[in-house]
Write a protein that binds this DNA or RNA. Structure first.
Lengths: 151, 151
DNA sequence: TATTGTTATACTCTATAACTATA
DNA sequence: TATAGTTATAGAGTATAACAATA
């Protein structure tokens, strides 16, 4: 095969990969959202709550960096979680510009109950691959993602 | 390893897979969006235009099925593409409930020019994997996606 | 009755800018 | 001056449901 044909093959393959990747994640996301919706939370709210639950209290700014949201959006999400009494704001005594988001008792109890179920659900959603296949895919996805990010 | 530990491993691995998949696609999407943005189109508009460009005129309803959008969203997207003179609506004479979306001369000329560049860009974005690795990943993603979809 | 497409409406998220309080 | 966070505002994009026209 000459260079030009090889180039076209690789273009088609890359396009295919992009489409299949998008479709697969859409299917998975849909199931994961169903799993979360019954808690009265949307995926962003769940992601923020889960971050605080597993990593402990976080400055508002840091949350935005980790779940990839603009700071005004985080204010909005934290407002909603605060209204639901799942987390609260706590001023930082050392730097009074900073506000921490802290999980509440109710938030902890909710996550204690639902997080194990959530992990179980994701395991079932991802059961199309076995353990070894998952390990390979994780590594390959990292390679793919790092390259794209580094462009 | 006993069953319970194996279960926990598989849960963690699945969660990891979900996170890595999400992150990788985010990085790729970001690059692809950059590639499209300079055309004055967003990814959805580009997807609809590309569908009509490569598959020919389509009933509005069919477009929604293929790009996975609700019919009201398609109305919105087609409105925008029509305002940009990239496609137009054409009534179906045989079934007057149906409206086709048809690509215009300007739409065809635009795609003739940018679609080859777009494929080349995606090839570069996906260059973190070689041809064989891409083939494997496409197959694995299909398995993963089909399983999730079938739940 | 069922289907196609539109309209009306609401929600989530983003971006921007102005602002307060603090460093 | 710079940073953390909030407020206000506007806009993109999507989903839902109700609707009109047609089959």
């Amino acid at each position: 095969m000459d260079h030009q044909n090889n180039d076209i093959l690789e273009e088609e393959l890359s396009l295919k990969l992009f489409v299949v990747l998008t479709r697969a994640l859409e299917s998975i996301k849909k199931r994961v959202e169903e799993d979360i919706k019954c808690l009265g939370l949307n995926p962003t709210e769940f992601a923020v709550l889960e971050l605080i639950y597993s990593k402990g209290e976080q400055p508002i700014q840091k949350i935005g960096e980790k779940v990839l949201l603009a700071s005004s959006s985080i204010t909005y999400v934290v407002d909603k979680l605060e209204k639901k009494d799942l987390l609260r704001r706590k001023p930082c005594p050392k730097d009074r510009r900073i506000t921490f988001a802290v999980i509440t008792q109710a938030g902890t109890e909710l996550m204690d109950e639902v997080f194990p179920k959530h992990k179980q659900a994701i395991k079932e959603i991802c059961a199309g691959l076995d353990v070894d296949e998952k390990k390979v895919m994780i590594n390959q996805l990292k390679k793919l993602g790092y390259h794209a990010q580094g462009l």
